[in-house]
Amino acid sequence: MKRSNEPIFWSLFGAGGMLAALIGPALVFITGIAVPFGFVFSPDTMSYAHMLAFSQSWAGKVFVLAVIALFLWHAAHRIHILLHDFGVHAVTAVRVLCYGGAFAGTVIAAYTLLMIKA
């Protein structure tokens, strides 16, 4: 029996799912509701200057990359499996679209973050 390479995709899926469950709703609340309406945080919390400063630090870069890339890998795997369960069995095309999309998103995010110089 050939060992499956699924652990790579499943681990990224699992990590993304864990992260989404832990901080996803909080992020939606902070970035989508609290900051724009000025509850708890001041409305300029997410101003360009603040966000730029955040993504100039290595910790900020890692955080932004983890949130973008792992959420994408999670979504890619979930959509891939959902399509399979719904009877779409164009395996290669679906895989290329889902995982290719997540991979492209990861590369673009990483490149963009690296280009933000202090």
């Binding site: 029996m1 050939k2 499956s4």
Partner: peptide
């Protein structure tokens, strides 16, 4: 178990 035919 570790193959595509197994858990995966």
């Amino acid at each position: 178990g570790y193959a595509d035919e197994g858990y995966w």
